[in-house]
Amino acid sequence: MTEPVLDFVHCPDARGGHRMAFWQWGPAQAAHVVLCVHGLTRQGRDFDVLARHLIARSSQPLRVICPDVVGRGRSDWLADPMGYQVPQYASDMLALLHALHARHPIALLDHVGTSMGGLIGMALAGHRELPLPQPVRRLVLNDVGPQIEASALARISAYVGQDMVFDSLASAADAMAAISTGFGPHTPEQWLALSTPMVVPAAARSVDGRARVAGAPEAAPAQGPVRLHYDPAIAQPLRAITPEAMSQAEAAVWALYEAITAPTLLIRGADSDLLSPATAAAMRVRGPRASLIEFEGVGHAPTFVTPEQCEAVSAFLLI
């Protein structure tokens, strides 16, 4: 399979529910599911190269599921922006997994999470009482841990939530490259592939009064103005964090991490400003005692578009 299938699942929330989009790779009946969850401002097509790699390497049928977390990509926007937090995201993943399990039972469940997606993964794997259709068997955390550096949060907060409109896909890709230097070197073809799903036609959604809460716009046009695909209001919970709330959140995530029993692989960009060497070292001796792989010349966060990055994940999961 060279292209994924787009599908949707209904997820409950305090305002009556919303629709979450997800991209499915591989045969729908495959019992082994790998759930790949993206970072704060990204979307499920970030994992295209990794998904193809995993399916090609797997000796058994494999379903790779890559959701657009609510507020991003083809998913709905939330009526209440303060819902853009990990508890809602984890609840949405639970709804997705149960929907997938109802269609074709899941026998093995693995999770790959980049940044925010890794926090969601820790919530799923660390809440032992969570009614998952199967417990998380193996967990990959991509450049994230229970403690996030304050300087990285400040950097991210400086650009998240701006409702930027660009003259073309090319200009949008250039702007995203300027704020994504931590991703490391990419060929022009790799960067265009990562950038194209990040924008939609400029007229697809409006933030005026948050009137357009739902919908799944078409992909970005080859020509014409475009805007970033995500709801600018995802920034509101981030900017509302106080130092006291941040300290409490870190303690809660460490407790989740300590409760994880699944074998865990921690991937870190050697130049990451979000996951410090000290936090990575602590994760190797606490909780699941994660194995650590670092990639030189990369910051926050590895994008899984290079053979060595993809091979690190497949070697860990496909055993």
Rank of each mutant, 00 (worst) to 15 (best):
P4E: 13
F8C: 10
A14L: 11
A14K: 13
A28L: 13
Q29P: 01
A30E: 11
V34T: 12
L35K: 04
L40P: 12
L40M: 14
G44D: 09
R45Q: 12
G73N: 02
D76F: 03
D80G: 05
D80K: 06
Q85N: 05
P87M: 10
A90F: 05
A90S: 14
A90G: 06
M93C: 08
M93Q: 13
L96V: 05
A99Y: 03
A102Y: 00
A107S: 11
D110T: 02
D110K: 01
H111F: 13
V112L: 03
G117Q: 00
P131F: 02
P135I: 04
R137D: 12
V140Q: 01
D143N: 06
S151I: 13
A154R: 15
I156L: 14
V160T: 13
Q162H: 15
S168H: 11
A170G: 13
A178K: 13
S180T: 04
W191M: 14
T196D: 03
T196M: 14
A202N: 04
R210V: 06
A214I: 00
A222F: 04
G224K: 08
R227E: 08
A249E: 08
V253N: 04
A255G: 11
A262K: 10
D271S: 14
D273R: 06
R286K: 14
A290M: 10
F304I: 01
S314P: 06
